[in-house]
Design a protein around this nucleic acid. Structure first.
Lengths: 142, 142
DNA sequence: AGCTAGTTGCAAATGGTTCTCATGTGCATT
DNA sequence: AATGCACATGAGAACCATTTGCAACTAGCT
């Protein structure tokens, strides 16, 4: 919680420096995002944010998420057949494994894969700008 | 062309066996798909299909694509910030490199990456069902 | 050739996301 | 602490790719 508090203050500072005002609504959304352990979508964030500040509208959730994304503070993911889901961009780069039964998202990272991707792009005459790697899986039954 | 002709007849046979009627409209869409060298979206397919059969409606394009996808004959791709794009599923599995400037799609395949993905899923206690790997790139300037 | 369940075109519905607009409010400046 | 105004907000309309309802059509088995 101490940690989270600092993190939130830090995020608010980033916004102010970027010329983005920290309103009551944005503070609520930031808090929810900083505390989230999962990858909620806009309406779930809206549901949670309303518990802090009942006036937050869904429009504002979307607008704030876009602003945060533009500031590089939030990342948006469009997993298959689903609404966009969000996470704070404080963790180092990682890819996602999605449990196709529960929708749960697990983060992972493979330097080998990262490197192979860059090599493939280079071989084809391209510079890799960004990538998307998602593993759609089912929990192993023993 | 000879080749394509056979391929189309083959596809039509698959459909009939799957209990899907081969209508005038579907034949047109199949032909377009079989001949496509790129990864067109629904409205582009519609545009092309109308040249063969002017009566083809966009609804039918969508409905046919869904049917074909369900028969495993077509694959749908939802690249970033874009409408769904389609390709026939006759080529062996591959991933995609997308030119972020032109939208061009290049197919590639890396057995190493395929294997690493399965290993990662296994390590996390999952069975890999399918995956999505897209490289968003810019043409290298020399 | 006839039957009938699957298909079609059209238009309207859908649903996540974005936009419009009149009103409200951070916050730099005083 | 009060002020001003550019930026934000809530509500609902707009957007737009895709899907669906419906009445008319038709592929293809018999």
């Amino acid at each position: 919680m101490r940690q989270a508090k600092n993190r939130i203050a830090e995020l608010e500072e980033i916004l102010r420096e970027g010329g983005v005002r920290v309103t009551r609504q944005r503070a609520a959304i930031l808090k929810i995002l900083a505390e989230a352990e999962d990858h909620p979508d806009a309406s779930e964030l809206h549901r949670r944010a309303k518990e802090i500040d009942a006036t937050v509208s869904l429009s504002t959730v979307y607008r704030t998420l876009s602003a945060l994304e533009q500031q590089g503070v939030v990342q948006r993911h469009a997993f298959e057949n689903a609404t966009a889901r969000f996470e704070t961009a404080d963790a180092p780069h990682h890819d996602h494994l999605i449990d196709i039964e529960t929708g749960a998202v697990i983060e992972f990272r493979s330097d080998k894969i990262e490197q192979l991707q860059a090599e493939i792009a280079a071989e084809l005459g391209y510079d890799l700008v960004r990538h998307r790697l998602e593993l759609y899986c089912r929990k192993r039954k023993d």
